[in-house]
Design a protein around this nucleic acid. Sequence first.
DNA 1: AAGTGGTCTAGACCACTAT
DNA 2: TAGTGGTCTAGACCACTTT
Lengths: 249, 249
Amino acid sequence: MDNHTTIDRRLFEPAYIQLINILREQIANGTYLPGSRLPSESELCKNYKVSPMTVRRSIKALLDQGIVSTVQGSGTYVKAPNLNGVTFSMEEFHNIFKDKERTKVKILEALIIRADDATANRLAIGVGDRVILIRRVLIRDGDPILYHKEQLICDPRRPIMEAELEVTSLHGLFVGTGETKLKRGELAIEAAVLSKEEAEVLNTIQMQPAFRLEHIFYDFEDKPVSWGRFICRGDRLKFATTVGISNSK
Amino acid sequence: MDNHTTIDRRLFEPAYIQLINILREQIANGTYLPGSRLPSESELCKNYKVSPMTVRRSIKALLDQGIVSTVQGSGTYVKAPNLNGVTFSMEEFHNIFKDKERTKVKILEALIIRADDATANRLAIGVGDRVILIRRVLIRDGDPILYHKEQLICDPRRPIMEAELEVTSLHGLFVGTGETKLKRGELAIEAAVLSKEEAEVLNTIQMQPAFRLEHIFYDFEDKPVSWGRFICRGDRLKFATTVGISNSK
DNA sequence: AAGTGGTCTAGACCACTAT
DNA sequence: TAGTGGTCTAGACCACTTT
């Protein structure tokens, strides 16, 4: 009955983290199989000598990890791994930017052009209105790995060039500078094959599989400020994730 | 000073949800700009007449949504939207399976073959060992949209065919049946172009951009049970998400 | 009726940051 | 030193499920 690990209050690790790991381990080793019920919250309180809020916090964490599901009035149940709530993170993508030593951003072009249909549509402006086009390539260890093409609305109230380039600086997009005037962004991943232009910039051949990450950013008035695309060779990027109990905590 | 919305205890909506929405709205309308500090937890307790745990729950939710960050001893700060913690869900993908009326799974082939290099490697068996190959196509409204190719280890202790097909039934993979013996799975999205075979199954032309979702599932002894790939035309699938404050709650 | 999870209170002590 | 977030307690009441 008391056949379980205990929580060590002397450790640096908080009680609710210890309880998360205890329950995760018990699920991982088959003590509680998919579909079975975990001990009730009040039982866990008694067994591990912690307060209800601490138990709830631990269970909430397992809930967020997609490992269990709760049914009010009934109990907490171990979920079978499934593809339902799976998410893929951009961590791999993000890592490209992390070590600034190895990566350099090269601006290929920055000029004012007239908006075409697609651009006018996405930026909610008129066809032929002026927009700023920026083409950048991100180079790691001398190797071009990411092509970024972006169009920004021309705000007459703002000074044009240098400052504008900072509105969505690549670094700002990724780490978040805290000084932005941007409220939100919409992102989408598409499968694509490299066009001739894209292949040239990325120093490879046409028709190779690639990811396109399209983004539109909005200001606090919900007006579009910029839209663009990251293009990345498919063999340089992978979105990976796990379901169920992964071995690394 | 008391210039704020209040929490209505008569509503069905819990207090912590109301507080989440109040803070989200204030961030969305620019009351608190990116980089600025939210009122302290004790201030929020006083202002909205709720207990510390309720305030913490609300702030934890904003933290999980990537909208704010907390610094112990300093405060809670509004984050500028960035691509750092962005995740893409498989919801769109999952929706393909949801209405069972419109979608049918057709088994193209199910037979025992000898493992090749790639299969032996992923399933941790020997080259030439017997595996079960299943090729399925998912059809929606008469239109083939998803091609699934999977290889399962032959477990001599299990009866072969019918039962085996259920180990990773497409429906089971997505909704989670609760009866699985699977502990965890690893997933990865790759960009690809359709091969001749894939294009034929999906009733389209070669070299079209496509997503490949590779998966490996493990049992409770951490032994691989199956590996396979979903192949989907790029024009039938899009992974989308938002950063910052999205307009829909 | 008994048990379960969902919400919430009104405090406490600690680690950390700012000044 | 004062203020902040991080952890935790020991209860309470409610909505819901199970028997």
